[in-house]
Design a protein around this nucleic acid. Structure first.
Lengths: 246, 246
DNA sequence: GACGTCAAGATGTCCTGACAAATGCTTGAC
DNA sequence: GTCAAGCATTTGTCAGGACATCTTGACGTC
């Protein structure tokens, strides 16, 4: 039975349930609340913090959705065993690496308008053959080792990539600055053998396996904003996913 | 502005918010509510159904978490564009395929107790060298084509696999029957070249790429119940994931 | 015509209160 | 001694209300 010290700032614009969730999460990853340990019950925690029970429940729900807590009716709420793995988030690879302390370098191979092929047309909801931005980039990790070839398509009707320097910042970072709020992304992860062009770019053997990812991202208007086909060197990258049953 | 007809059964044990979510989802996948279309506002929908606003919100939230709806404050709730892809769920491959109308066949290659190696010991939270169930299976799709080699480890202290026939039913299906409630799973998806043993089992060339997945599953007590290392033939399988920003 | 203000409409947050359902422990009957 | 009934505990569901905040469009002013 554990009850970490939590402080609330009611004058802050940060929602109360989020303040609680943040501090609870810190207490879990720091080990202040050990794996398998049980939390104080919702009603008591709410009273201790001067919160209502729904607000307390909302805070706990955030961490349940992250796979860090499990609830059982009639029993209580417990911390899940096992080290917490960082979740795949809705950022591009660039932001991912930068956040991890790496200093990724990017080379833009192609940045121009091309007619949409069948798959692009379907994923981005634009007419077949209509112009879409085609962005091909090669990404390196610190040390100069090539990590991935990335090929993105963006509808020219809502994005203008004409003057954007995408060697200096990640695509998702640019899209955020341009006012797009990415809310949903559908990814498909697979594998295949490397192609000759990729082998040269990634400095891999001709028979090397590659990890592939296709992604379509949608903004808060429900529009498809970006579709990408990417290939990663499997020794240097993998996708971590947490599934939660609800 | 769309408002599909929804019927409620207040005598049913199924929660009201879930009844609403289910019928809304059906209306979206069936196309009754088109992509990009806006929903009636929460308050009106709640009144029409004789529900409180929190219950209506909870129903909508279910579909937001599934990536089917997006909300914008001050504006409303919209259906996301793009075909809805079936989400990866917390079931084993067997259940996945069976649900998809396939008739998977399974061969058990190994089902015995082995001492836990370092990774298994760490993932399952058991002592190094302690006995754990080792389950190696080969899975075929309809037509007899091999699809994947699967290697699972289960702690012998909480599961007994001694007399279980895992050619007839999937592992997760058995675990459910045995009273385990799997709530959280952490997966890591990668790729590598095929190994000689696998190449023979999967009828692949010696240089073929494989899609790999490692998974640790936890039950509603927070215990690690299963750890697995699996390899799939990439032409026949891929992982679909939907990411939602909250 | 450009800009700022205001109001309407929608979701976001937070509160109080109540009952239902599952779990685990205790108690009592046999 | 064993099993079943009952009780306390805890999360799950639902209601109804209040105010905050963001977005959009209308209106008016400069």
């Amino acid at each position: 039975m554990s009850s970490p010290r939590i402080t609330l700032d009611r004058s802050s614009p940060v929602p109360l349930y989020f303040q609680v969730a943040e501090q609870l999460e810190r207490a879990i990853v720091s080990g202040e609340i050990g794996a398998g340990e049980r939390l104080e019950n919702e009603i008591t925690m709410a009273q201790d913090l001067g919160l209502s029970r729904p607000t307390m429940r909302q805070a706990i729900q955030v961490l349940v959705d992250k796979g860090m807590l499990v609830r059982r009716r009639g029993v209580g709420t417990q911390v899940v065993h096992g080290q917490v793995r960082r979740q795949v988030e809705l950022t591009s690879l660039f932001d991912d690496l930068a956040a991890a302390g790496q200093h990724p370098r990017t080379t833009v191979l192609e940045q121009l308008l091309v007619p949409a092929d069948e798959q692009v047309s379907e994923q981005l909801q634009v007419g077949l053959g209509e112009p879409v931005w085609s962005l091909r980039r090669l990404r390196f990790i610190a040390g100069g080792e090539p990590l991935a070839v990335m090929h993105n398509y963006l509808p020219s009707s809502i994005v203008d990539l004409g003057d954007v320097d995408l060697e200096a910042q990640g695509l998702y970072s640019y899209l955020r600055d341009a006012g797009f709020v990415i809310r949903v992304a559908r990814q498909s992860i697979g594998a295949r053998g490397v192609r000759p062009v990729e082998a040269r770019l990634l400095r891999e053997d001709v028979d090397a396996p590659l990890l592939t990812m296709q992604r379509t991202a949608y903004d808060n208007l429900g529009r498809a904003v970006e579709f990408g086909r990417h290939a990663y060197r499997p020794g240097l990258y993998s996708f971590d996913v947490t599934l939660v049953d609800r």
